[in-house]
């Protein structure tokens, strides 16, 4: 899943604030062509390796192209889409994506925010604890998946040995349809919660000390300080992190593929896993592309929804 890193707000809002105010702005306009020159390689690269493939993907989704002869597909109009929208397997996949994404977003934000609050005060060993908390974020996904497969092992895994102490189990964490989604979400949350923690930690450090001071004077206890002061201050950041987590969860492939491959009984067969299966197991490239496009539509819908909510919240906060 690559790097979990994007700076959203700024990249979208465009330029840094000081630019318009700068007296040198009009002079910089003259050097405009150098600006194009500097950004051109990156843009051209993305056109060749992303935009054109994406366009090819759109084209493919209207054909019945198969993996054995990728050049020989014929145009079938909306057949693939029509088939998908009427297919229970596709809707199961959509449901799995939404459950997986929702669960990962909610639990990683809760755990990440809680952890950030816990380590946001000076204490001995803080640096060491923070370093350990970053382990999951730095661990290669394949290595993480590998060790989780062993932890989840039905007969010898440490997960079943632990619940066995309480007289429970053994449970087929990856093989039982009741637990597959839980196991995949659990491993994913392990992998991604440090990212949330890092972002929240930075946001916490921007809470003005006077606010804590005021709360202390008012005699607020820790929990009500958090609810009344810290949490409202964190909300804009939580919204951005929720967007990133959502987009990344919709497109996450490796950890699910390696843990369950979409099973058991397709319970974790998210759209992205479904694309891969259609393309490289069923060899139906056209159908795979159509699933992918519907996945992109889902991501776009979430992003647009986010900006609508964001604008409203910003307007409300400005009024208040």
């Amino acid at each position: 899943m690559g790097t979990d890193t994007t700076r959203v707000a700024e990249s979208i809002s465009g330029e840094p604030r000081d630019e318009q105010a700068s007296p040198a702005a009009h002079r910089r306009r003259r050097r405009l062509s150098l600006g194009y020159l500097l950004i051109a390689p990156a843009m051209l690269y993305l056109v060749v390796f992303m935009l054109i493939p994406l366009y090819r993907g759109v084209q493919l989704s209207f054909t019945d192209t198969r993996l054995v002869s990728p050049a020989a597909g014929s145009y079938v109009g909306f057949d693939n889409y029509q088939f998908l929208l009427g297919s229970a397997r596709f809707w199961n996949s959509m449901t799995a994506t939404i459950i997986y994404t929702g669960a990962v977003v909610v639990f990683s934000i809760i755990l990440g925010t809680l952890t950030a609050v816990l380590i946001n005060r000076p204490f001995r060993l803080r640096g060491g604890v923070r370093a350990i908390l970053l382990f999951p974020y730095a661990t290669p996904t394949v290595a993480a998946a590998l060790v989780f497969v062993w932890i989840y092992n039905r007969s010898s895994g440490v997960m079943n040995e632990t619940i066995g102490l309480a007289g429970l189990g053994p449970v087929g964490w990856l093989g039982d349809p009741r637990y597959g989604m839980f196991s995949v979400v659990f491993a994913t949350v392990w992998k991604v919660f440090p990212f949330v923690m890092l972002v929240m930690l930075a946001a916490l450090q921007s809470v003005p000390d006077e606010l804590y001071e005021a709360a202390r004077v008012d005699g607020a206890d820790g929990l009500s300080t958090f609810r009344g002061i810290v949490l409202p201050h964190l909300m804009p950041t939580i919204r951005v992190v929720a967007l990133l987590m959502t987009i990344w969860s919709i497109r996450r492939f490796e950890i699910i593929y390696l843990l369950t491959g979409g099973g058991p009984v397709e319970r974790t067969n998210t759209l992205v896993i479904n694309i891969y299966q259609q393309a490289f197991q069923q060899q139906r490239l056209g159908m795979a592309a159509a699933i992918g496009m519907l996945g992109v539509v889902l991501s776009l819908a979430v992003t647009v929804g986010f900006f609508v909510v964001e604008r409203r919240a910003a307007a409300q906060e400005a009024q208040a």
Binding site: G57, V272, V296
Partner: peptide, 8 residues
């Protein structure tokens, strides 16, 4: 950041 690798 929105495009799944699996699609491309």
């Amino acid at each position: 950041q929105m495009l799944p690798q699996a699609l491309l």
